[in-house]
């Protein structure tokens, strides 16, 4: 059985990386990151002054625009885009086969439908992982090479956080791991919608629409929508930023190596995991019950 799963996974990975569409995501994310890095390299000082306008009473000294801050800015901007790129592949995994008429042939082999669905899901997870590693290399490592290292100066909604440069890298590792779970949630949603359709476009557009709708609902400060915010997966996807907030001691000194709101991160991770389990459970159930006609 394990041998079968490994073979299935290899086949699914081959299918993913044979398609030109797969590389759109790598190209698009690289283009976006390089454009941002170029802009900040050329006009970074202007951006830094603009950023500091809101704390005019303070004199900030040091290398504000360093690789760590640039990476944070890039990740903030890519918050909406990377999930959309994952959708391009995930939402096509089952429905793509259906639209090409290969799903029936695939499921006629002596392998359980659950194994086929899970192999496709694992392959999507591998693709998502590679995309995230690509983004991490470009956004973090290349930014550090171009802009250098220094402390991370962040202006949260109502306060400033300064994190020492030797206390940042591990936070990015944690943030990328968290982002991976977020993206797998998006992949699971795409998968579920893909299991309901017989064409590629429908599930891709539907998944993107849900992400955009939930993101917009999450940013609206209207009480009726605030009530549903805790249940939207997009609300929990942004919690990676909490890795970049420190606890303080009684003298209000930031304590290196701490995270201000770890329970909130764990809660969000659990919510996202529940989303993944429910969506994948539903996908397996739909595919097992489905009358395959194409």
């Amino acid at each position: 059985m394990e041998h079968n799963m490994w073979q299935l996974l290899q086949i699914e990975l081959y299918k993913i990386f044979r398609r030109p569409r797969t590389y759109i995501a790598f190209g698009a994310s690289a283009a976006l990151i390089i454009i941002l890095q170029f802009g900040l390299k050329v006009d970074g000082s202007e951006y830094a002054s603009f950023m500091l306008q809101s704390i005019g009473n303070f004199d900030v000294q040091g290398k504000l625009l360093n690789g760590y801050l640039v990476c944070f800015i890039i990740l903030q901007l890519m918050l909406v885009h990377v999930p959309l790129l994952v959708t391009l592949i995930a939402a096509d995994m089952i429905s793509g086969e259906a639209s090409h008429g290969t799903l029936r042939m695939l499921l006629s082999k002596p392998i359980s439908r659950t194994s086929v669905v899970m192999a496709k899901f694992y392959a999507t997870c591998v693709y998502t992982f590679l995309l995230l590693v690509w983004v991490a290399i470009l956004a973090l490592l290349v930014s550090l090479l171009i802009f250098g290292k220094s402390d991370l100066f962040l202006m949260r909604s109502e306060y400033i956080v300064i994190i020492r440069k030797d206390d940042i890298f591990w936070r990015y590792i944690c943030a990328f791991c968290f982002a991976y779970i977020s993206l797998v949630t998006v992949a699971a949603l795409g998968f579920f919608l893909s299991s309901l359709a017989d064409n590629s476009i429908g599930p891709i557009v539907a998944t993107m629409s849900i992400i955009i709708l939930f993101t917009v609902l999450g940013t609206l400060n209207i009480p009726v929508y605030k009530a549903i915010n805790p249940y939207l997966f997009t609300t929990h996807m942004v919690v990676w930023k909490d890795f970049f907030d420190e606890k303080v001691n009684v003298s209000n000194e930031a304590i290196a190596g701490t995270i201000e709101n770890l329970p909130s991160i764990i809660h969000s991770l659990l919510v996202l995991t529940v989303y993944i389990i429910v969506l994948m459970g539903a996908t397996v159930w739909v595919v097992r019950k489905k009358d395959i006609l194409s």
Binding site: M51, S54, I55, F58, F72, M155, S157, E158, Y159, N221
Partner: peptide
């Protein structure tokens, strides 16, 4: 008291306090 507080200009989508 009269100091300005930051506005989250690192393109933060946080909820306000």
């Amino acid at each position: 008291k009269n100091y300005k507080l930051p506005k989250g200009l690192t393109l933060d989508f946080d909820e306000g306090t």
